[in-house]
Design a protein around this nucleic acid. Sequence first.
DNA 1: TGTCAATATGGACCATCGTCGATGTCGGTG
DNA 2: CACCGACATCGACGATGGTCCATATTGACA
Lengths: 114, 114
Amino acid sequence: MSVTTLSTTPQEVSACGTSPVDVLDRAEADHRAALLKALADPVRLQLLSIISAAPGREACVCDMTEAVQVSQPTVSHHLKTLVDAGILTRERRGSWAWFRLDVEQLAAVRGFLA
Amino acid sequence: MSVTTLSTTPQEVSACGTSPVDVLDRAEADHRAALLKALADPVRLQLLSIISAAPGREACVCDMTEAVQVSQPTVSHHLKTLVDAGILTRERRGSWAWFRLDVEQLAAVRGFLA
DNA sequence: TGTCAATATGGACCATCGTCGATGTCGGTG
DNA sequence: CACCGACATCGACGATGGTCCATATTGACA
């Protein structure tokens, strides 16, 4: 097979002697980064720990505002961030809002971190 | 057992009827958030995908600058972020810098995401 | 309908982040 | 020693993020 075929053939080697490999495409990288970004905050991790430890893997906002050292609007903001990312789901029951873990979404994150 | 014992007893129930649970303490939450933050960027995920797919799970900077659509200083900056977080290790060989995955650190992240 | 409690939204402020161009540093080679 | 290529650092800029207070919305209930 000839060496001088096409400039687009992935058969070349770079300066340090290795052959270039495939990169995760940007769209998928953006999607994964958005998920990780939603998780990458200490208060949100605390909120998730509450929900994760609660019976039925769901918790009410009033429990969380008491357990975390930020204001109620800030808790609401963080919960919205997690819902928008698909990590939590929100359900209204009477006066209270309940949040439940989406375990599949979390499993997906663990998956691409392997 | 009396109901009016002490205000610090964790036996109370909150407004919505559940009993408060333990929260992940703030220091540990900060540590985990720092790790996730280091991972939560599309370019860094692309860099990690290159290293992860390379033979020996290590790659040279020159390969990465070619594969990603940002400038060389930006690649260097992202690699430093990952090294500072303990996700990558840097090793100098001649003119080139090689980066290797710390698989245990990544496993730890997957661990607390369970 | 009016009021209250629970939650969400809007606006503002300060800190941090991602990116770049310019430049510095270090190793190899003539 | 001088030069060159690989990589790191610096300084700056615009964008995004976390937080708060004030206020709006929603649902229960008198």
